[in-house]
Simulated scan of single mutants.
Amino acid sequence: MTPRTAEAARVEEANQAFYDAVERSDLDALEELVLTGPLAETVSVVHPGWPVLRGRREVMRSYALIMANTEYIQFFLTDVEVAVDGDTALVTCTENILTGGPAEEEGEMGSLVGGLVVATNVFRRTSEGWRLWVHHGSPVMADGVDEDAAEDVDNGGEGSA
């Protein structure tokens, strides 16, 4: 395994640890993964449908609110791509999310809802390992690429109108 490939694997492990912490509602584990130090105030997150939140304190507060108000969440990551350049790494992926509401009757699971979010996660290498610097999630609103729109792009914007 080349050093670059090894670093990409470490970044992918940090990325998975981030999602695992959110799934478990483990705020302490998430605290360990989010960047601290001189760049702490540049940490940011965009949750789907939310405005940008800046600063480690606001970001952690948002995750605490999400964890407190989410009965069940599970992420199945697909299309994971990792790029490493020096002390910065970029991960793009699709979050296939399964969430559930409160149980309707004791002992029964509440209703489950699925959704797709495309995410960009930026990590920074520190002496403690790779730490999450930026998370941006955007809901997928379309089923696929509009072939006419793709043709317009391919033709420099001069499609068949």
Rank of each mutant, 00 (worst) to 15 (best):
R124A: 09
E32C: 06
T88F: 04
T99S: 07
L98H: 00
T99E: 05
V34P: 07
G101Y: 05
T99N: 00
L90R: 15
E128H: 13
E7D: 06
D28F: 02
L65R: 13
A14R: 13
L77I: 10
E81C: 04
A83I: 02
R10I: 02
G144V: 05
R57Q: 10
R24L: 08
F123E: 07
E58L: 11
S44I: 09
V45C: 13
S138T: 15
E58Y: 04
G137H: 05
V11M: 06
E151C: 02
G49D: 08
M1S: 13
E23N: 12
A17I: 12
A40C: 11
D26T: 05
Y72N: 02
R10S: 12
I73E: 00
T99Q: 08
V145T: 15
I97K: 05
A6K: 05
E105F: 02
V91S: 02
S44L: 15
V82N: 08
R24T: 01
I66G: 07
M141Q: 08
R57A: 13
E23P: 00
A9F: 12
A64C: 04
E95I: 00
T94V: 14
A83C: 01
E151V: 10
L90W: 15
A8L: 08
R24M: 04
L27T: 14
D143G: 15
M1P: 07
I73R: 01
T99L: 02
T78I: 10
V122R: 14
V122T: 14
F18H: 12
G129P: 02
N69C: 00
G101D: 08
E105V: 09
E158I: 02
E158N: 06
R24I: 01
A64K: 12
V22G: 03
L112E: 04
V118F: 10
L90N: 08
G156L: 06
W133R: 07
Q74I: 00
E58P: 01
A40W: 14
V113R: 15
T5H: 01
G55Q: 04
E158M: 03
A89L: 02
E31Y: 03
